[in-house]
Nucleic acid binder design. Sequence first.
DNA 1: ATCTTCCGGGG
DNA 2: GTGTACGGAAGAT
Length: 781
Amino acid sequence: MIDNFFILDFSYDVVENKPVIYIWVIDKEGNRVVLLEKKFRPYFYALVDDSYNIDEIRKEILKLSKPYSPITSIDVEEKKYFGSPVKVLKIETVIPAYVRVYRDEVAKIKGVKSVLEADIRFYMRYSIDNNLKPFYWIEAEVEEIKENNFRVKKVYELKKINKLYEDKIPELKVLAFDIEVYNKYGSPNPRRDPVIIIGVWTKEGGKQFLADKYDDLRAIREFINFVQTYDPDIIVGYNINNFDWPYLLERANIRGIRLDVGRRVNGEPSQGVYGHYSITGRLNVDLYGFAQSIQEVKVKTLENIADYLGVLPKEKRTIVEWYDIPKYWDDEKKRDILLKYNLDDAKSAYLLGEVFIPFGIELTRISGLPLDQLSMASVGHRVEWLLMREAYKYNELIPNKEEREYESYEGGLVISPLPGIHEEVYVLDFSSMYPSIMIKYNIGPDTLVKGECENCWVSPVGHKFRKEPPGLYKNVLEKLIQERKEVKKLMEKTIDEYDKRVLDARQRALKVMANAFYGYMGWLGARWYSKEGAEAVTAWGRQIISDSAKIAKEKGFTVIYGDTDSIFVKGGGDINSLITEISSKFGLEIKIDKIYKRVFFTENKKRYAGLTEDGKIDIVGFEAVRGDWCDLAKQVQTNVIELILKSGKVEDAIKYVKSVIFDLRRYNFRIEDLIIWKTIDKNLDEYDVTAPHVVAAKKAAKAGYLVSKGVKIGYVIVKGSGKISDKAEPYFLVKEKNKIDVEYYIDKQIIPVALRILEGFGVKESSLKTGGVDILSFFKK
DNA sequence: ATCTTCCGGGG
DNA sequence: GTGTACGGAAGAT
């Protein structure tokens, strides 16, 4: 029988010593169904030295065959390796895990230069070879079989796939969840601390499963039951791969039950690659992975991200600090607040899912990486999966991952700013400069020429790249850019709001992917790593920017600033003729990114603040937009910038700063506004210096807080003697305002950030600290 | 006083 | 488990 299916995910299993691939799908009627593919077999390649007899090597390899998973075939194939033709042996076996066993043995055979493509997961191999990607439809020939191991409507054996095509996405069932844990002593420990609340949110609203005082058995059981009954296609949550899933698994284990939430009976979430938890038949999406790409939010907590994206504003939700949870649980009168907080978190996760999932779906459609993995995979891995799929189409072998030594190279050009206030400033921006350079000069590891070269592009730093034929990067980038053009064109013609949103998500995803190629090429872990390539990209970029600045000057413009792929100009003649000249000279698109009515520079690079024509203020690089300054300092700097840019009155700004200092000395502030956040980037014992945040982190660890790599530590400076670091305390250990060292905040936070702006106007530190201070705060007047 | 280490935002 | 450039704080010497 022939039917159509919408692909959600892939997985595989070994049944009776043979691999079976499961394709989790939805049929035309909306039934959740699984297709079993039983014929596909794992394989890998051996790259053979030309001076050896290939048949001899073949025989040697065949001798390795083991009865449990025999080598079923060895074929000679012609492939390309970094663009050059090579002969390889394709070695096929039965059980996927045996690829690893044979790989190591084959690598030792004389005449085998290397083994390739032996580290690709089995179901991904299948999806690459058959050009199958999640969120597309397939038309397939199938045969129904009887199986009771799956929580799906029907089980089919897949006979043949006729075609892959795009069509409307069926309505996907999404379930969001969040757990609360009872821990009185710092970091939660699943061996000791029970789960007290499991909150879920779906299209139909919220639901909570509560522990019986400190006994969580029933709550966990009810949660499992709810997931099975609701049967979601997608489960979302925030940081669930690092916390909720491992915690629930351990608790279930301790209580002697199985966390059986998948579409395979008696399955449990299992940890996969990229640290994600894989739930058979469902897509387990950790939204934290998507949140990390939001640069505008410094401290990426669920409430901050939900607030920033407007799905649940902070003032409309309940917040309970983690260290207060036991208090709220134990106090009958306060418990409702805790329950509300948990439900708000689950709801936030659900609503964030609505924002991120459409974008994630498009990234999956481009890269082929299933959504659950994609949500956790780094940008580099997303690019790599796309390249691997494309390489297969070009008959290119996929290079192995390699250990490499770090080597630094020169980056983008930053033109020193012209200090002061400027009016009517145009910001000219090269669109997708690095991808364009990679295409124009055919840059990549497979096009790099080390010796003499007749028909090559030579970069400003001397690296040569052959002009023809196009390399892998150029081929793939051109496809992405071409497709984006077509999507944008289609978008203009589209009226349907839903279709338009899909197309918009797609064009954003295509842009994000293309822009990530340069960073990928310079990443030490990349299969297609090329330091020369990355170096050449930035070198051409520097040349383009400095030449563009020259052209602007020749045309009578004043160049105020420039960074990597943009220049700021004012005055001169016709801006459009400048744009035309630059874009025709380099063959790159350059456009007016924005126009500043007023923009302000100090002598420093990468720091400026501007007022756009529509009255919006951009602050770049200053403390006001950095995460490692306390909120109060950021507010002060923001207000000073606004006062200067909007009215140009320095006097008002000075008065305002004085009023803030006055309030601090009267202890008229909130402790939260004084917290300084920094990231712990190493293990605590690896630090050579005793910086304040490291000391605070150690104190937090001592208080039971789990401090690991990548954790953000918030601290305040308290009164006392000695070094600043001795006075740094984790904020949650400081309850009283009068413990705060207000003089530190005045001298090291408020005055420096204010002066960074006001110094340019001749204001001195003394004029902020001395003189009469109004009794009333500045803004109260 | 100067050097070193560490960190984060943004083009 | 994408890149480099840059400014600034605070410790180390």
